[in-house]
């Protein structure tokens, strides 16, 4: 990266470190921080959508739909999330391939599960066998995003379901008295009012989501954990210009600090938002603000 980095063997101290930390491989670990942020940026709104759907379904007056919503909330919370991550990555992949198989190869006569193999026709493979490397990586990443969204959608559904029930009953009754249909009551009265009640739970969820991002590693994405293990391992002078002993401990220490900083900043920002939202509300928090002012 820098001009003085041409012969690392002659360098020492901070100059060596500055060269070492800007090698091509180190740039990929910095990029993978971007992957984590991208995952958070996509997952958070999608999971919120899933959660909203789940909570709305659980409230539905149509019994089977409400059972479905409640089962979605209950099952994901009763089972370790990491089991779901490992499950959905394979299950979603096979599900997509199976659907494409049904559409693209209707006259395929062999069974799809042959012993320990899952066989679909070549056109139904995802991604296609001749696809470029970046397609494979993007597909893997999208599967991971979908998996995260399903699992965290259930957590969000739980929070939103609670928030919907926390909206004062009188508000909904008033809406009914004004002649609103259930649909109108839901969209015009319930949904706008539930966010204040949902925010503490959702901010907690955001923290949990941040702390779940290293699990990307288990889903086969080359994320920061992957690179920390790769780069930290002992290197001999034969394979690299920057030989060093086993430094994985320090790499993971750096990750620890990164996550601590990330959660701390989120905490401060979320506290600000909460203060802004409780301002003037007829709740204990709002009352405390009024007294302090």
């Amino acid at each position: 990266m820098f001009s003085y980095c041409t012969d690392p063997a002659t360098l020492d101290g901070l100059t060596w470190l500055s060269c070492y930390l800007t090698t091509g491989k180190h740039l990929s670990i910095y990029w993978s921080v971007g992957t984590v942020l991208l995952l958070l940026a996509i997952t958070a709104p999608v999971a919120l959508m899933f959660g909203f759907g789940g909570a709305a379904a659980a409230r539905s007056r149509f019994a089977p739909l409400s059972w479905l919503g409640k089962a979605y909330i209950a099952v994901v919370r009763g089972v370790p999330d990491i089991a779901f991550f490992l499950f959905f990555v394979i299950a979603l992949d096979q599900g997509f391939e199976w659907l494409r198989h049904q559409v693209k190869c209707p006259d395929w006569d062999q069974p799809i599960r042959q012993g320990n193999d899952f066989v679909v026709c070549a056109e139904a493979k995802l991604p296609l066998g001749n696809a470029a490397q970046w397609v494979h990586e993007t597909y893997g990443f999208m599967l991971a995003v979908l998996t995260f969204s399903i699992v965290f959608g259930a957590f969000a559904a739980n929070v939103l379901f609670g928030a919907m029930r926390a909206v004062p009953r009188a508000q909904l009754e008033t809406a009914e008295a004004y002649g609103m249909t259930p649909r109108q009551t839901f969209w015009r009265i319930l949904v706008p009012q539930m966010w204040v009640f949902a925010l503490p739970g959702l901010s907690n969820l955001w923290m949990v989501l941040i702390k779940a991002t290293p699990l990307l590693f288990l889903l086969g994405v080359e994320d920061i954990v992957y690179w920390a293990r790769e780069l930290g391992g002992a290197k001999t002078a034969r394979f690299t210009d920057y030989p060093h002993p086993d430094w994985r401990m320090w790499y993971f220490f750096a990750l620890l600090v990164f996550y601590l900083a990330f959660t701390r900043v989120s905490e401060i920002v979320l506290d600000r938002i909460m203060k802004r939202l409780t301002h003037g509300q007829a709740t204990t928090g709002g009352e405390a603000q009024r007294k302090a002012a």
Binding site: P214, L215, V225, R229, M249, F252, L256
Partner: peptide, 22 residues
Amino acid sequence: IFVFRGSPLFIQFFFAYFLFLS
């Protein structure tokens, strides 16, 4: 409390394992 609640358990495991290894 801040250190253990603010960082992912997964990273704590990794860090502890490599710490014990060294």
